[in-house]
Design a protein around this nucleic acid. Structure first.
Lengths: 135, 135
DNA sequence: GGGTTGTTTCGATGTCCGTCAATGCAAGAT
DNA sequence: ATCTTGCATTGACGGACATCGAAACAACCC
């Protein structure tokens, strides 16, 4: 399967500008591009279900043969989605004999959760009034 | 443009199947579709930067006139991205006089962060070998 | 080796998405 | 009233994506 996995987000180092989250400081274009790849990988119902099926698996890993029958899609299509999730760094896989097993990369989901979390005690934005959409 | 803002995620109720996160139990297709809409809205560098610029604003809200010049994109394009973020429930806006102000909807980002967080003390997956695959 | 099972890659097609130019609309300024 | 500014909407175009069928590849079993 080749090791062309694209590491879209550096492990934990960087200039420390990625971890404080996107809600506290505007992120530069480079970080936005990398982050968008991961969110784009999550922006598909099939991939979300695949990810949840993999992540919620008791043993921590799933064989593709257990994933495919849950969808009305062809096997190549499932493989394609798994590839995108893998390239996004959300899952990883290993071939053992005939089958390929996938498991979650918790560091990536933790990273995303941290990025979407704002430091506790934030003064709550919003105009504290009305709602009405503009226009 | 009417109030066609699509509420992609119910406030907090539901059958309680949405909050435990997508990492603990496989989500059904309906939830996956709704969640995918939000992640898809985040799957674009421009929208990520817009969101971070809005969220990190001191006063909690930003005028569109402060957002547009930060990009090399036309004003309609920025407006289009803001509309998608608003339809995803991530931001909201209000017209005050000549200008339109946007602010973050923290409940939505909190929701996403919760969904991506796995309950503390999870046994960490990874290829622990074994596992007899069905066929 | 030959056959079987299962996964991935390749090529093609239809659809969606991001972008812009032009236009429309609301609110203040003159 | 008219002009000007600020933002949203429309329509259209080019590129990217999802999906499929067919074929190539890898590992096991006989």
């Amino acid at each position: 399967m080749s090791n062309q996995d694209v590491v879209v987000l550096a492990p934990t180092d960087e200039s420390g500008a990625c971890c404080p989250g996107l809600l506290t400081a505007p992120l530069d274009e480079g970080q936005a591009v990398e982050l968008a790849k991961v969110f784009k990988a999550l922006g598909d119902p099939v991939r979300l279900r695949l990810l949840s099926m993999i992540a919620s698996r008791a043993g921590g890993e799933v064989c593709v043969c257990d994933l495919t029958p849950a969808f009305d899609l062809s096997q190549p299509t499932i493989s394609h989605h798994l590839k995108l999730l893998r390239q996004a760094g959300l899952i990883d896989c290993e071939r053992r004999g005939t089958w390929v097993y996938y498991w979650l990369v918790p560091e990536m989901t933790d990273r995303l959760a941290g990025i979407l979390s704002r430091p506790t005690g934030e003064p709550l934005p919003g105009p504290a009034a009305s709602a009405g959409a503009a226009s």
